[in-house]
Computed example of a mutant assay.
Amino acid sequence: MLEALAGTGLAAAAGLNAYIPLIALGLLGRFTDLVVLPSGWAWLENEWVLGIIGVLLVIEFVADKVPALDSVNDIVQTVVRPASGGIVFGSGTAAQTAAISDPGAFFESGSWVPIVVGVVIALVVHLAKAALRVAANTALAGIGAPALSVSEDVASVGLVASAILLPALVIVVLVGLLVAAFFVVRWARRRAARRRSRVAITTVG
């Protein structure tokens, strides 16, 4: 159960930001005892891989906070984030962490299963994020993109920390994100409706 929650948290984090969970697993595996990656995933700890992921993280961090460019970035990330979700779910559920002492007992029937599950989870989160961003950008004419992006990055970091240190918290974080997304969408729709009403009144006048 803990393995499933850990993998879900990591994959959901990848759906928000593809590179945060990747670099977190790589750095923690390389420099700490919190994560012990199995040999099949040890490439995540390679210094060249970490350097490339770091550069991509910076690019993503900037691009996702620029109105209009963030929507283009979401299109590109439709492939990247699910792929990252598959990697971190597979590596995270196979790794020994502070909260998971027997990862080998999880998904013993096939190593491909966790990867597929991670891809699906990350894709669902990514599509929800992209739809939420479009609704918010429409309501705010794009000016809310930086704040939303920062919130998503913080949520991604929170999911990674929960998945590694205390997987049970992943449920709490995900529920919180769902509630927050619901209120943001409802607010965005109301604001968009008010804007349409003002435009209609101005046109009639």
Results as ranks from 00 to 15, higher is better:
residue 129 K to T: 08
residue 52 I to T: 11
residue 112 W to T: 01
residue 150 V to W: 14
residue 69 L to I: 08
residue 119 V to E: 13
residue 74 D to W: 04
residue 61 F to N: 11
residue 69 L to D: 04
residue 9 G to N: 11
residue 21 P to F: 09
residue 164 I to E: 14
residue 130 A to R: 13
residue 12 A to N: 03
residue 44 L to S: 01
residue 165 L to I: 11
residue 8 T to L: 14
residue 157 V to F: 09
residue 41 W to R: 11
residue 176 G to S: 08
residue 176 G to L: 12
residue 16 L to K: 08
residue 108 E to I: 09
residue 41 W to H: 09
residue 126 H to G: 05
residue 68 A to M: 11
residue 182 F to I: 10
residue 60 E to P: 03
residue 202 T to I: 14
residue 87 I to F: 04
residue 17 N to R: 14
residue 144 G to P: 00
residue 88 V to A: 11
residue 173 V to Q: 09
residue 12 A to K: 02
residue 188 A to L: 03
residue 79 V to I: 14
residue 195 R to F: 00
residue 24 A to W: 05
residue 204 V to L: 15
residue 199 V to C: 02
residue 156 S to T: 04
residue 66 V to N: 05
residue 28 L to M: 10
residue 82 P to I: 15
residue 89 F to C: 08
residue 34 L to F: 10
residue 159 L to R: 04
residue 110 G to P: 03
residue 200 A to Q: 11
residue 160 V to Y: 04
residue 79 V to Q: 12
residue 12 A to W: 02
residue 175 V to M: 11
residue 197 S to F: 07
residue 200 A to W: 08
residue 16 L to T: 03
residue 61 F to V: 06
residue 195 R to N: 02
residue 111 S to D: 04
residue 188 A to C: 00
residue 157 V to W: 13
residue 20 I to E: 08
residue 14 A to D: 00
residue 88 V to Q: 08
residue 146 P to E: 15
residue 182 F to T: 02
residue 179 V to P: 01
residue 182 F to C: 06
residue 107 F to L: 07
residue 139 A to V: 01
residue 121 I to C: 10
residue 54 G to P: 02
residue 10 L to N: 01
residue 198 R to D: 11
residue 17 N to S: 07
residue 35 V to F: 14
residue 73 N to G: 01
residue 204 V to Y: 06
residue 43 W to D: 12
residue 107 F to M: 08
residue 161 A to N: 09
residue 97 T to A: 15
residue 174 L to G: 00
residue 45 E to Y: 04
residue 6 A to I: 01
residue 65 K to C: 06
residue 56 L to F: 00
residue 88 V to E: 09
residue 14 A to G: 00
residue 17 N to D: 06
residue 198 R to W: 07
residue 54 G to F: 04
residue 31 F to K: 13
residue 76 V to F: 15
residue 111 S to I: 02
residue 127 L to H: 04
residue 132 L to E: 05
residue 184 V to H: 13
residue 24 A to D: 05
residue 106 F to H: 13
residue 191 R to S: 05
residue 179 V to A: 13
residue 114 P to Q: 15
residue 204 V to F: 08
residue 83 A to E: 12
residue 196 R to N: 04
residue 190 R to C: 03
residue 137 N to M: 10
residue 98 A to K: 07
residue 42 A to Y: 06
residue 48 W to Q: 07
residue 77 Q to S: 05
residue 129 K to N: 11
residue 77 Q to T: 03
residue 146 P to H: 15
residue 89 F to D: 06
residue 179 V to C: 08
residue 168 A to M: 10
residue 99 A to T: 06
residue 173 V to L: 14
residue 96 Q to C: 03
residue 174 L to N: 03
residue 149 S to A: 07
residue 47 E to S: 13
residue 144 G to A: 11
residue 171 I to L: 15
residue 197 S to K: 10
residue 22 L to T: 00
residue 29 G to L: 12
residue 153 D to I: 10
residue 148 L to M: 08
residue 88 V to Y: 04
residue 62 V to T: 01
residue 18 A to D: 10
residue 18 A to N: 09
residue 158 G to K: 12
residue 21 P to L: 15
residue 176 G to R: 09
residue 23 I to G: 02
residue 35 V to M: 14
residue 64 D to W: 05
residue 177 L to Y: 00
residue 137 N to I: 05
residue 11 A to H: 11
residue 169 L to C: 03
residue 29 G to N: 13
